[in-house]
Design a binder for these strands. Structure first.
Length: 111
DNA sequence: ACCATGACGTTTC
DNA sequence: CGAAACGCCATGG
């Protein structure tokens, strides 16, 4: 049953391609993968990304509002925030400042 | 097969 | 403008 679904595989790949100091939303990833309705599945995939052998910068993936909804699943609430701030991203109350400015659209950046 | 949950998103009130 | 409800889809019980 451990067949790497193309969906998860793409999520990991895309997440790993997120440039430094950039962030994206689950919906954007899902849409890029061809499943704009499966934004939740993206989050589910990220959950497994922690167990993945690769280093998935899941901290660069947030919801469409730019809120750090999944900080608890990251292995600590402070960790995700700290990582993002370390990349030059301002975060206040689990909310990314100038989210649109840091937003990274795979469809635009990747062609 | 059905119900419940979840790192989301959009629409409605 | 803010909160709540609904919708989507996959995984687990």
């Amino acid at each position: 049953m451990e067949e790497k679904d193309n969906f998860f595989e793409k999520v990991y790949k895309l997440a790993a391609l997120i440039p430094y100091g950039r962030v994206t939303s689950y919906g954007a990833i899902a849409k890029y993968l061809g499943a704009p309705r499966s934004a939740r599945m993206v989050g589910w995939a990220m959950n497994g990304s922690q167990l993945s052998k690769q280093n998935i910068p899941a901290h660069r993936v947030v919801n469409r509002k730019g809120t750090l909804t999944g900080k608890h699943h990251f292995g600590g609430s402070n960790m995700m925030c700290q990582l993002l701030e370390s990349e030059g991203i301002e975060i206040i109350d689990d909310q990314i400042i100038d989210f649109s400015k840091h937003f990274w659209d795979p469809e635009k950046e990747i062609k």
